[in-house]
């Protein structure tokens, strides 16, 4: 957690210094824009966290650990792809569930797969936004091209995990 604080502090400092070298919108204006985006999060993140920690208590640990744990291998990656694709809702719903699944024993590679599948396939988003905006042709081509991305991400994460141990 410390490294997250440090990373963000460095990023923020760097951006602020870079901004300092340019004349355009000042820091105050940028902070005001940030505050507008912050407001809904002040409500959403606490709710999401508390819901996540309750859900973590309800998740069946043995089942999660055996079907999505580090030992679940390729089968776990395919299951995670399927789960990610049908996971409904935005980050406010997905990340607390992910937190609950990780604390119940889901492996890193499997969780990378799940988040990637949710990110690129997200069937609820396809139906709600993509089909109406982009039409069947473009959406269909995109989905076909993206089907294998989540398993690729999972396998790469597995390789990284294996290289580190």
């Amino acid at each position: 957690m410390i490294s997250a604080y440090v990373t963000l502090a460095v990023l923020l400092l760097g951006l602020a210094l870079w901004r300092q070298t340019q004349p355009d919108p000042g820091h105050r204006q940028i902070a005001a824009g940030g505050w507008r985006q912050m407001r809904p999060l002040l409500v959403r993140i606490p709710i999401a966290l508390i819901a996540g920690s309750f859900l973590a208590m309800l998740v069946p640990r043995e089942l999660v650990a055996s079907s999505l744990g580090d030992g679940s291998g390729l089968q776990g990656i395919l299951l995670a792809t399927l789960l990610g694709a049908v996971m409904p809702g935005g980050p406010m719903i997905t990340f607390p569930i992910a937190l609950a699944l990780i604390s119940a024993g889901t492996g890193t590679a499997q969780m990378v797969t799940l988040i990637t599948a949710w990110s690129v396939l997200a069937l609820h988003r396809v139906i709600a936004f993509e089909l109406p905006a982009l039409g069947w042709r473009l959406t269909g081509i995109r989905l076909l091209a993206c089907l294998i991305l989540a398993p690729i991400a999972g396998l790469l994460a597995m390789l990284i995990g294996a290289a580190r141990t």
């Binding site: 997250a4 604080y5 963000l8 502090a9 990023l11 923020l12 951006l15 602020a16 870079w18 901004r19 355009d24 919108p25 204006q29 940028i30 902070a31 824009g33 940030g34 985006q37 912050m38 999060l41 993140i45 966290l49």
Partner: peptide, 18 residues
Amino acid sequence: IMPIVVAAVLVGAYVQAM
């Protein structure tokens, strides 16, 4: 988490401005 979220939103705001 809250300090991280505040910093992250500010980073996002800077990136958008740039």
